[in-house]
Design a protein around this nucleic acid. Sequence first.
DNA 1: TAGTCTCACTTCGTATACGAAATCCGAAGG
DNA 2: CCTTCGGATTTCGTATACGAAGTGAGACTA
Lengths: 218, 218
Amino acid sequence: MLLPLDTNQPSLADQAYEAIVAAVINGVIGLGDRIVMDQIAESLGISRTPVRDAFHRLENEGLLLATGRRGFVVREVEDDEVVELYEARKAIEGYAASLVASADDLDERVARIQAVVAVGTGGDRSTKAIYLANQAVHRAIVVEADNRHLLASFDGLWGASVAHFAYGQLFPTKLADDVIAEEHAPLLASIASGNPEAARLAMIAHIGEGAEQHISDQ
Amino acid sequence: MLLPLDTNQPSLADQAYEAIVAAVINGVIGLGDRIVMDQIAESLGISRTPVRDAFHRLENEGLLLATGRRGFVVREVEDDEVVELYEARKAIEGYAASLVASADDLDERVARIQAVVAVGTGGDRSTKAIYLANQAVHRAIVVEADNRHLLASFDGLWGASVAHFAYGQLFPTKLADDVIAEEHAPLLASIASGNPEAARLAMIAHIGEGAEQHISDQ
DNA sequence: TAGTCTCACTTCGTATACGAAATCCGAAGG
DNA sequence: CCTTCGGATTTCGTATACGAAGTGAGACTA
């Protein structure tokens, strides 16, 4: 076999997907706005087919909402839902933390998580960068739980939170320079202790802090 | 506004989706089999476009696996993954149980769950019927947790388990007649007690029993 | 025999075309 | 002025057509 090489170039549907997400994050498309396949297709210079794929993917992820023959709408996020998102994260990431804490090769796993924390510390300090660094740390913990379904649920949750990010409510402005390292230190220590229930509760507390900050910043 | 009436008839894509799932569940299409858009489209008498939608949805849900230009494959399930599925359910449904147990209107919620149990008790005793009744009870608990994201994760997990069902390993044969009511009684009692942590642990134990039975029946 | 090369074929992604259903909007009527 | 009505328009779902990329089998060579 001659090296598939598999450059795996993103399809037009992927590009359309990314373009729409970026447009929402950058505010080019506002929450609540109506968006229409034909218009997006034309503005991207491609046909409606791949745009259609992207729309359905985004609808499935919760960023878009189909409204019959009146096009799609960028879904607005109710405050209730933000609370629910944090609660759901507690369920998944809390359990993931307990799984990591009960692993045999606990030390190696924690080391890999620490490496991700290190990458997210320093460098770009924009809101977006910090958002992504935080996500990376949390994802790393779920990855170390070594459970595909848990990870899929995590990704689904964070995919859904794109709209919330656009809502401009996540990690607003008042973040210290090394939040990533600082805020996750107690959490990681708790996981490293090897006590599953303590790790779970630490994760729940950690997420709860993020939620409170989020709410209070409105 | 004049009653949208909205019969909401399923699209051809929906029908294709259902047809493929049914074919896998009924064994018409075996796990590991290759399936091709054109063939499915022809056998359903529709064009490739809606079939394509169904394929991507099924790929996203984990039932199909894209294999480049060689078509799609009905994904086979490794034993590891079954374990992971049960673990992920513990995370989500366990937390959901604790949320229900901590609700103000606990009694009403438990009553609604009991109603679902009642529906699933008696009647059709086929493997499939029991599988669905069990799913309905578990879903009802998550519904009562009143959290859209948790419910979406639950649905994602159980959607993924279609392949496992097809694998013929879920609820094999040795089920008593009123399993649904019997096996869930302690769980519901624990939720009704109003102790969130007890409810969570009861759910985890309950799912663990299902997992053990599942594994031992191979 | 084993390996390599070529070429027709398969399969999907994308483009384009068509139709159905609902919406929008202006005109008619009260 | 408000409501009702009807047709042009919008918008999506589906069908069909085309092209690119990879596959597979058979022929050819060593």
